[in-house]
Design a protein around this nucleic acid. Sequence first.
DNA 1: TGCTGTTAGATGTCCATGCAACAACGTCTT
DNA 2: AAGACGTTGTTGCATGGACATCTAACAGCA
Lengths: 154, 154
Amino acid sequence: MTLLRDDGLTAEELTVWRLLQRAQVRITRHLEAELLVAHDLPLASYEVLMQLAEAPGRRLRMNDLADRVLLSRSGLTRLIDRLQREGLVSREACADDARGLFAVLTDAGAARLAEATPTYLRGIRSQFLDMLGGGEIAQIRAMLGKLDISGGAP
Amino acid sequence: MTLLRDDGLTAEELTVWRLLQRAQVRITRHLEAELLVAHDLPLASYEVLMQLAEAPGRRLRMNDLADRVLLSRSGLTRLIDRLQREGLVSREACADDARGLFAVLTDAGAARLAEATPTYLRGIRSQFLDMLGGGEIAQIRAMLGKLDISGGAP
DNA sequence: TGCTGTTAGATGTCCATGCAACAACGTCTT
DNA sequence: AAGACGTTGTTGCATGGACATCTAACAGCA
């Protein structure tokens, strides 16, 4: 039982990390599967549409968007390619920086997002929030906020 | 600002889920990168070796192992292929079920694991545990335990 | 024994992703 | 004004994972 981790991590500390992994993977897979069967929309695509919908002018620079959806720049390029092919997103030039591109949510994209959103939210509720008590959500939010590198403000 | 989520999730609830995603992805990437540069060992490989080391007889059935490392069966087949090629793991037949196979940790695998473990544990500490207070670890463990489907016992 | 159905792993195929390299553009210095 | 340097986004390439499918082997029942 002590083959490893005599290096300063207690069994509990290691367990916490494993639980975090498991929770995130389990929820992610649930959402992915549900969105796919119900709306033929991968989770990553959903998250792009969601971020764009929340952004002012329904648009975001590629770089900015990549950070928000936790994807590499090249990964996002390909993903936006696909979404553009489906007509859910378009690319527009950036006025004040000729290198830059905006990914812009189209009306079709907004409609598709609206369809899928109930599935997404229901999944988060049933696979995550419902399993915690009310006060616990605030607690876990505070702790996860500390883990967030981008200075998690309240 | 309320383009979506009038469906019953508060902004905070949605934030919690996003923070969980971000935390897990950030830590995972850190570990992957560190293990790769320092030991040329992908995170998934490390986790396989780790699980085998903890298992009785340093061996686990393929199916069982796949569940523990959160991989599909085919994914694990390929991964064990690679580890076997490197000599870190071997396959052994199962006495009481001729269909079954054990993945077994070799001495070379154990050595490689021992080399990489400090890097792994240091990563978890610096990217995760150090960012939380002592009491918080127990708290978050309790909550994440509730999220774990496999009846998280204390 | 001979069927039927189920389970354990391995493979063929496809697709998403990351990294390194690149091109185009911006910024800063002098 | 001009070059050095950083940034932005796209591409070639390789990797790794999932799904569907396949084979072998078990279990149950007639």
